[in-house]
Design a protein around this nucleic acid. Structure first.
Lengths: 139, 139
DNA sequence: GATAGTAATAAGAATGATTCTAATTTTCCG
DNA sequence: CGGAAAATTAGAATCATTCTTATTACTATC
């Protein structure tokens, strides 16, 4: 018996996104992030996808996350020096870290706001990425 | 012979700032940061103040930086997962990381702009800290 | 359909910024 | 002065992440 294409495709995720071949491991990482709004860490992703892929390694999770980030399929979010978190929301947005619960919430910009209009940037600046993070609490 | 007060005070830095006793080590860390606009890392601070305090330890530099940050005398700045950097500018501002040169520039907001006016925050949110970081290049 | 070349994965070791621990020194205050 | 508290030191420990090397999977070609 021979198989063609991917090892396993009981999935709704395409075989390629933004030029990145979606291997089974990348699919599981991506699927989990898509269904999860909690901005999990690499280790949390690892723990969770082990249910579907018991032999997956943490290094692979890191590799997958890096590949997905570089192909702009997900975003990496950093709070201070805590472990990186990952976010499937590609719209321009910030992150609010609620210190009381430890949860992270996406923060949209009010309509019509363009970040670069607000900042006093040096001329001829090409911005590749903006990260806005807030810390505080929901009173 | 007895000495009163601090071990050494050939300095222009007060003995206390924001309720933090400015020991000789904290003074040196702070003085260096004040004269430096390059947002140095803990290790860079360490290398430099060793000239004035040859027996200072890296742990002490970390302790001093933490104390200064907690007393809002300096700010800690993080870019992705790179080593933390430290900044004596307390005005609300962001940081632009020029990928070409590796340098970091403070970015002011245009006058009259209030960050929280722009963000679509949940009601009753108390913001303790905002961090805005940009990556890109000066063309 | 076999096969060679390339890419991805796995397991564990290595890295490196930061934090912790325990011992010593300095400062504060009665 | 003398004891308590705070700060400093040196080195060990931590832990997220990256690297290394071997194995496995995929792709294109014959």
């Amino acid at each position: 018996m021979t198989t063609h294409g991917l090892q396993n495709q009981q999935t709704d995720i395409p075989e390629e996104i933004n030029g990145l071949r979606m291997t089974r491991q990348r699919q599981e990482v991506y699927r989990f992030l898509m269904g999860e709004r909690t901005h999990p860490t690499a280790n949390e992703v690892f723990m969770r996808i082990k249910e579907a892929l018991p032999h997956v390694s943490l290094a692979t999770v890191y590799n997958c996350l890096e590949a997905l980030v570089q192909h702009k399929i997900i975003r990496q979010v950093n709070f201070d020096r805590e472990p990186s978190r990952y976010c499937p929301n590609l719209d321009e947005h910030g992150h609010f870290h609620d210190e009381t619960t430890g949860t992270i919430h996406d923060v949209k910009f009010k309509p019509g706001i363009n970040l670069t209009d607000i900042l006093d940037l040096p001329p001829n600046t090409v911005i590749k990425d903006i990260e806005i993070t807030l810390r505080g609490q929901l009173a």
